[in-house]
């Protein structure tokens, strides 16, 4: 068994002079959840398609479980993979159950699991209805069920929660957590960074066709050394003293309605906390926030520019 589920080595994809993907190396371990993020045109969709074998790389190699995705054993690869595209209209005249059975036959998967899968994605009641009567969220659930056909070892999910309502998003991630416990490798893209932040083991951040950074959310935060956000509640009479204790750190807090908000460098965190504790009983509450994934993403984008 290969150590990695997915191995991308020196992969490039050129369209004439345009380098959509330019020398990317990436390895995804078995059972890992990897998020792929980047701005529009960063190359993540092209990389995604190449990992699925939908496009051939101009250079480099991609292997899934040690097998070349576009080689003679491509059927083996694709039977191990489930893919949920971002925007796809399925066949309107087929029912949900017929749609799943169609894809099951093409995937050589057991058609008996279709009913179970429909129930698993919350469409047990709608399997006999034509897909043209499905809402966007229902169609998205059906696409997810399709990706789960044949018990794939690797899932590629492109904007999987697009069109889902909050309960749909919650159901989706609950299923994903369950799959994760069974060792399924998951690669997902999403523009909803707050969703991704809590659910991935690692993030690959793409920019201008290159892999700009790759690591856990925390590692990416620390590598960028973004400031921490403080939200401090103090008694009204403590405002001058609060300003005074922060002056040595060159911090000018924004104080409104008894709350002070300011940012400080990660390295100054302990010192600032110690200084705040000097306010004694006049300090009512302290909330310390790590930079969000959005902050991290924007920080990397700024660095790339």
């Amino acid at each position: 068994m290969n150590a990695n589920s997915i191995e991308v080595r020196g992969v490039a994809r050129h369209y004439g002079p345009v380098r959509a993907v330019d020398g990317v190396d990436l390895a995804v371990a078995h059972g890992e959840v990897m998020g792929l993020i980047g701005h529009n045109g960063a190359g993540k969709t092209t990389l995604f398609k190449m990992m699925l074998g939908l496009e051939r790389p101009s250079a480099g190699a991609i292997k899934i479980d040690g097998i070349a995705v576009s080689g003679p054993r491509f059927r083996d690869v694709r039977r191990r993979v489930g893919y949920m595209p971002e925007t796809t209209s399925l066949y309107p005249n087929l029912t949900g159950l017929e749609t799943l059975r169609f894809f099951a036959r093409l995937k050589n998967a057991d058609a008996k699991q279709c009913t179970t899968l429909l129930a698993r994605v919350g469409l047990g009641h709608a399997g006999a209805r034509p897909v043209r009567q499905y809402s966007k969220g229902m169609a998205q659930r059906l696409l997810f069920a399709q990706a789960l056909l044949g018990q794939p070892r690797i899932l590629f999910l492109d904007e999987p929660t697009h069109g889902l309502d909050p309960s749909g998003v919650s159901d989706f991630y609950a299923t994903l957590d369950e799959l994760r416990t069974h060792g399924v490798t998951i690669v997902l893209t999403s523009h909803v960074l707050s969703e991704v932040e809590q659910r991935v083991d690692r993030l690959a951040l793409m920019s201008a066709g290159k892999l700009q950074a790759c690591g856990s959310v925390q590692a990416l935060r620390e590598a960028l050394d973004l400031p921490l956000a403080f939200d401090v509640a103090v008694r009204d009479d403590a405002e001058p003293d609060l300003r005074a204790v922060l002056t040595p750190f060159a911090i000018e807090p924004d104080i409104r309605d008894g709350r002070a908000r300011f940012r400080c460098a990660r390295g100054a965190k302990v010192g600032v906390l110690a200084a705040l504790s000097g306010l004694g009983q006049r300090l009512l509450d302290v909330t310390l926030k790590e930079p969000t994934l959005e902050d991290v993403y924007l920080g990397y984008r700024k660095a790339a520019q």
Binding site: L52, L54, R78, E86, T88, K107, Q146
Partner: peptide
């Protein structure tokens, strides 16, 4: 155009 070609081509066919 519907986006289903990529889905079909991700299958073992």
């Amino acid at each position: 155009e519907r986006g289903s070609l990529a889905l079909l081509m991700s299958l073992p066919i």
